Simulated scan of single mutants.
Amino acid sequence: MAEWTYRLRRAPAYLALLRGQARSQASYRTSFVVDLVSNVGATALDVITVLVLFRVTRELGGFDRTEAMVMVGLSAAAFAAADLAVGNVEVLRRYVRSGLLDAVLVRPLGALPQLLLMDLPLRKAARAVFGAAVLVVALVAADLAWTPGRVVLAVLTPLAGAVFFASIFVATASLSFWWIDSGEVGSAFTYGGRDFTTYPMTVYSGWFRAAFAYGMGFGFVAYYPALALLGRADPLGLPTWVGWAAPGVAVPAAAIAAGVWRLGVRHYRSTGS
């Protein structure tokens, strides 16, 4: 109880950091608007890529365009929200290399929230809105037989997916505590994971699918929830209830990321500069 009271008392400080970032980034309005619009491009390209594939084929991994777009929408909404919220944790490498992290650690605030709020990329908000819009359009086009359970799953899945991707961002960024030049490795799992979840798992095979879809949990971000929403059996053989339980993968992912972060902070040694 005392810990939660302490955290609530620190909330105004975090809000002040957020307001400061918002004012700073919005001070040059034209540049801010251009950044907002241009940031939609990355998500739009993911959608366009899938649509282009369906110009030359009627099915992708056994799924038609409408079904595949549900997976694209779930993935896009989840990743864009995570990228907005924690994507800038990648600045950790610069903070560790330069010693700026020392100043963050001595403040009476959590190190991770500070890193996120001191440089929150509000320009990515348009990408998050676009990702949510893609999901809504895909669900409407799929003409699903809506039930209370499907409504809950449709809302919960992108939120859980955002937590999952946020965990990947934090865990891979934490490698900087041991290996400063780990940026490319981190991108392979964050942006690579986004690309992986954009397509049905049936287009992958062998150890690659086993490692990423099941071992790391990427298959439960969009593919299995999409099967549950669409009312389709899994061509890969898992039972139908997996789709309904899939959002639960966010819980262990968040716990692992938190553990890696805490271990990294304890491992950190000041540069002395």
Rank of each mutant, 00 (worst) to 15 (best):
S167F: 02
L100P: 02
F189D: 13
R65M: 12
G259S: 04
V106T: 09
R19A: 15
L53K: 08
G272S: 03
L144D: 05
Y224M: 03
A166G: 07
L236A: 03
A126T: 01
R93V: 02
R150T: 01
G217N: 02
Y191V: 08
M201G: 12
D64P: 06
Y199F: 15
V251S: 12
P121I: 09
V37R: 12
V155R: 13
L116I: 03
A226V: 01
G20M: 04
V163T: 10
Y204M: 04
A138H: 05
A111M: 09
G219A: 11
N39T: 05
L115Y: 05
A11N: 13
V89W: 03
S31C: 10
R58S: 15
Y204L: 00
A188F: 10
V34G: 07
R58F: 13
P239T: 01
G87Y: 06
F220D: 03
L175I: 09
G87D: 11
L109M: 11
G20P: 00
A160K: 02
A68C: 08
F165Y: 15
A82W: 10
S98A: 12
L122E: 08
D195I: 14
G243I: 04
G73H: 03
A26T: 14
A211P: 02
L74W: 00
I48H: 00
L135Y: 04
G272V: 00
V52W: 15
L100E: 15
P235R: 08
S24V: 06
V72W: 02
P239F: 04
I180C: 09
V260H: 04
V91M: 08
H267P: 01
S182W: 07
G231K: 01
V249N: 03
A103W: 12
F79R: 07
G193D: 05
V151A: 08
L229F: 12
M216T: 10
S27L: 09
T57W: 15
R127G: 10
R55V: 11
A85K: 05
R266M: 10
D181K: 14
L120W: 11
A250I: 05
A2S: 15
V242S: 01
G183T: 11
L53P: 01
L60S: 03
A213C: 06
D195A: 15
A226S: 11
A85S: 10
V89M: 08
A2W: 14
P239Q: 00
P148L: 08
L120K: 04
G99L: 03
D83R: 01
G206M: 01
A226R: 03
S270K: 00
V140Y: 07
L45W: 12
L74N: 04
A126V: 07
T202K: 07
V136W: 13
Y214E: 00
A145G: 15
L92F: 01
T197A: 02
Q114M: 00
A254F: 03
F208L: 13
D234P: 02
R55W: 14
A133T: 11
F130E: 11
P108E: 10
T190E: 13
A142L: 00
Y214Q: 04
P252L: 10
P12C: 11
Y6Q: 15
P158D: 02
M216G: 05
T57Q: 15
D143Q: 14
W244P: 07
A126R: 08
A44P: 03
S176C: 12
F164N: 06
L227T: 06
R65G: 11
A258F: 10
Y224W: 13
L60F: 05
L74G: 01
